[in-house]
Amino acid sequence: MPDGGTRLTHRERFTGALTVFGGAMFDRTRAGFEAFNTAFKARCEQPSMVDGR
C-alpha cells in the first residue's frame, strides 16, 4: 500500500450442486468470517510487543 499499510483480502467461494441447500449454514459461516476479520483487524492494529511499543 502506498501509505505503508497492509491490505488483507479474505474470500471464500462456495460452488457446486449442494450449495443451493446451504442457506442458514452459509449465513453462520459468513458471520464467523466477519467475526474473525473484526478480531484480526483489532489484533493487527495493536502496538507491537516485538519492538517495545
Rank of each mutant, 00 (worst) to 15 (best):
residue 3 D to W: 06
residue 42 A to G: 06
residue 31 A to N: 08
residue 41 K to Q: 10
residue 13 R to P: 00
residue 40 F to N: 05
residue 43 R to K: 12
residue 34 E to Q: 10
residue 40 F to P: 03
residue 26 F to V: 11
residue 3 D to C: 05
residue 20 V to P: 02
residue 42 A to T: 03
residue 38 T to A: 14
residue 29 T to A: 15
residue 31 A to G: 03
residue 14 F to K: 02
residue 10 H to I: 10
residue 1 M to N: 14
residue 8 L to E: 15
residue 11 R to D: 09
residue 29 T to L: 15
residue 24 A to H: 09
residue 4 G to L: 02
residue 39 A to I: 01
residue 53 R to E: 07
residue 11 R to V: 11
residue 53 R to I: 04
residue 4 G to S: 01
residue 6 T to G: 02
residue 16 G to K: 02
residue 48 S to W: 07
residue 34 E to L: 04
residue 45 E to W: 02
residue 41 K to L: 13
residue 40 F to M: 10
residue 21 F to H: 10
residue 10 H to V: 12
residue 27 D to L: 03
residue 16 G to H: 09
residue 53 R to H: 08
residue 35 A to N: 06
residue 28 R to L: 04
residue 33 F to T: 13
residue 7 R to P: 04
residue 18 L to F: 01
residue 5 G to P: 00
residue 28 R to H: 11
residue 19 T to V: 15
residue 45 E to S: 09
residue 52 G to N: 07
residue 20 V to I: 13
residue 27 D to I: 00
residue 41 K to V: 12
residue 16 G to V: 01
residue 20 V to K: 14
residue 37 N to A: 12
residue 13 R to C: 01
residue 7 R to M: 13
residue 27 D to A: 05
residue 27 D to T: 10
residue 52 G to Y: 04
residue 37 N to T: 10
residue 41 K to E: 14
residue 25 M to K: 15
residue 51 D to S: 07
residue 38 T to E: 11
residue 11 R to H: 11
residue 51 D to E: 04
residue 43 R to M: 09
residue 15 T to E: 13
residue 13 R to G: 01
residue 25 M to V: 15
residue 37 N to S: 09
residue 29 T to I: 10
residue 22 G to D: 13
residue 32 G to Y: 05
residue 32 G to K: 06
residue 4 G to R: 01
residue 32 G to F: 04
residue 7 R to G: 10
residue 17 A to L: 11
residue 39 A to R: 14
residue 13 R to E: 13
residue 34 E to S: 02
residue 51 D to G: 03
residue 15 T to I: 07
residue 44 C to Q: 09
residue 39 A to Y: 10
residue 21 F to T: 10
residue 36 F to L: 12
residue 8 L to I: 13
residue 26 F to L: 15
residue 29 T to M: 11
residue 24 A to I: 11
residue 36 F to Y: 10
residue 49 M to P: 14
residue 37 N to V: 07
residue 11 R to A: 13
residue 9 T to K: 04
residue 11 R to S: 13
residue 39 A to C: 07
residue 21 F to M: 06
residue 16 G to S: 06
residue 33 F to W: 12
residue 10 H to W: 12
residue 13 R to Y: 00
residue 43 R to G: 10
residue 2 P to G: 09
residue 53 R to V: 08
residue 6 T to H: 03
residue 24 A to K: 12
residue 16 G to M: 06
residue 25 M to C: 09
residue 13 R to Q: 10
residue 9 T to A: 11
residue 13 R to A: 04
residue 22 G to S: 15
residue 4 G to V: 00
residue 51 D to F: 02
residue 13 R to D: 06
residue 19 T to N: 03
residue 38 T to Q: 11
residue 40 F to K: 04
residue 44 C to Y: 08
residue 28 R to V: 04
residue 47 P to V: 12
residue 38 T to W: 02
residue 22 G to W: 05
residue 53 R to L: 08
residue 2 P to N: 06
residue 18 L to Q: 12
residue 38 T to V: 02
residue 22 G to A: 15
residue 32 G to I: 05
residue 38 T to Y: 01
residue 21 F to R: 14
residue 46 Q to I: 04
residue 30 R to M: 00
residue 40 F to W: 05
residue 46 Q to L: 13
residue 47 P to T: 15
residue 10 H to P: 00
residue 7 R to K: 15
residue 52 G to T: 00
residue 53 R to G: 04
